[in-house]
Design a binder for these strands. Structure first.
Length: 159
DNA sequence: ACAATGATTGTTTTA
DNA sequence: TAAAACAATCATTGT
């Protein structure tokens, strides 16, 4: 049982953030450079050896892939689909770093009264600015009436 | 590490 | 030397 040679972790942290096209997919090392030719390596595998059982997550993936294909028949490139999500992820990361900065600052300055949480991260836009529309009392009273009148006329138009 | 998957791409083999 | 075939790589979670 050899442990990981640090390969997985390094790749996951560094390469995973790059877009697909920039990642070194398929850029493997030549077997010859490792002293073995392809056939030798291929012969080393036993086709009769049973594959290990899929975990629950992989069983879920079976269904998910089918479902996703059915819902998105024309999606070939995952990059385009991934783009908006990477965008959101980047935003969350920025938000996180900002919060961490404030958090660390609070730790330095003192620990009392640190509850300020939390403006939830809405993925829609950075339009999280308060959209409170100021109206005066007159508007507050007349708006529902106007709305009712317009609704009435609209419904009446079908009769 | 390794199960499934498919696009991608370097390497090897074959013509 | 070109095209064809092959194999590594990526991401994902759970074991």
């Amino acid at each position: 049982m050899k442990t990981a040679k640090g390969k997985d972790k390094a790749k996951n942290t560094k390469e995973a953030l790059k877009p697909v096209d920039d990642r070194k997919v398929g850029k493997r090392k030549a077997p010859a450079e490792k002293g073995e030719t392809r056939k030798e390596k291929k012969a080393k595998k036993d086709p009769n050896k049973p594959k290990r059982a899929s975990s629950a997550f992989f069983v879920f993936l079976e269904d998910f892939r089918i479902t996703f294909k059915k819902d998105n028949p024309n999606v070939k490139a995952v990059s385009a689909e991934k783009a908006p999500y990477e965008e959101k992820a980047a935003k969350r990361k920025a938000e996180y770093e900002k919060l961490m900065d404030a958090y660390n600052k609070n730790l330095e300055e003192g620990s009392d009264e640190s509850e300020k949480s939390r403006s939830e991260v809405n993925d829609e836009d950075e339009a999280s600015e308060e959209v409170t529309i100021p109206i005066n009392n007159a508007e507050f009273c007349t708006l529902p009436i106007v709305f009712c009148l317009l609704s009435y006329r609209f419904l009446k138009s079908f009769a």
